[in-house]
Amino acid sequence: MRTTTAPSGGSFDGRWATEVCRACDPVFAAADVGFVRSGDVTDPGDQKVGAILWEADPTRFAARYPDSGIVRSYGEDQWPGVGCIDFWLYVEAEAATLRLSVEGWSLPHLAIEATGHGGMDGMQVASVFARILGVSPGRPGRASSR
């Protein structure tokens, strides 16, 4: 059964985002393509986090993941001007859903049912990002099979 708001005791606030990032940051570090977290987008009214963005260095990303089709997706002419490769986590608090949107591999937005607890949600999100990037979640530097 799906809840319409975060379960009792959970939320999608700054503390939640910190815990999610604590789980995801090692995954992005393990990819070794210069990912940096660009912060989160917070609704000023209810202080709920609406999105978290990680950005990779496009040259390093394309070199590490040539099968991602990232250069082709931008086009050879536009590729030199690309500033970053975006990996978004969108938070739909009312629906208790997290949507992952990544550049490369022509993947659709991936949905994860959220708990509203940063540690648990972070592990779920990190696991999906790790599978996409072919790295082990929580173990920087170790590759897994893709």
Rank of each mutant, 00 (worst) to 15 (best):
G10Q: 06
A29G: 04
D25Y: 13
D67S: 14
I70Y: 07
L89H: 11
A56Q: 10
W79R: 14
D86W: 11
L89N: 07
V27S: 09
Q47A: 11
D40Q: 05
A29P: 07
I70L: 06
K48R: 15
V20G: 09
A29V: 08
I70K: 13
L89S: 10
V36F: 01
G10T: 03
W54H: 13
V36H: 14
P26C: 01
V91A: 04
D57I: 04
E55K: 15
T18D: 15
D13K: 09
V33H: 14
R72Q: 14
G83W: 13
F87I: 01
S68H: 12
D25M: 02
G50I: 02
C21G: 15
R72W: 06
F28W: 10
C84V: 04
D57A: 07
V20H: 10
G10Y: 07
W54R: 09
C24N: 03
V82A: 00
W54A: 03
P58E: 04
V82L: 01
R64A: 09
E55N: 11
I85A: 04
P66G: 07
I85N: 09
D46T: 05
R37T: 01
G39E: 00
A30W: 14
V49N: 05
P58D: 06
G34D: 01
T18W: 09
R64F: 11
Q47E: 08
D32E: 11
V49M: 00
A51Y: 07
P26Q: 02
D13G: 07
L53S: 03
G45C: 00
D67F: 11
R37W: 13
L53Q: 11
P80S: 05
D40L: 04
V27K: 10
P66T: 03
F61I: 01
W54L: 00
Q47P: 06
D67G: 06
A31F: 06
F28D: 01
I52V: 14
A51S: 13
E55S: 13
T42Y: 09
E55Y: 09
S11Y: 08
W79I: 02
G10F: 11
P80M: 03
P58N: 03
Y90Q: 05
R64Y: 13
S38C: 05
I52M: 15
T42Q: 08
D67E: 15
P44S: 02
G81C: 11
G83N: 12
G50S: 06
W88D: 07
A29Y: 09
P66R: 12
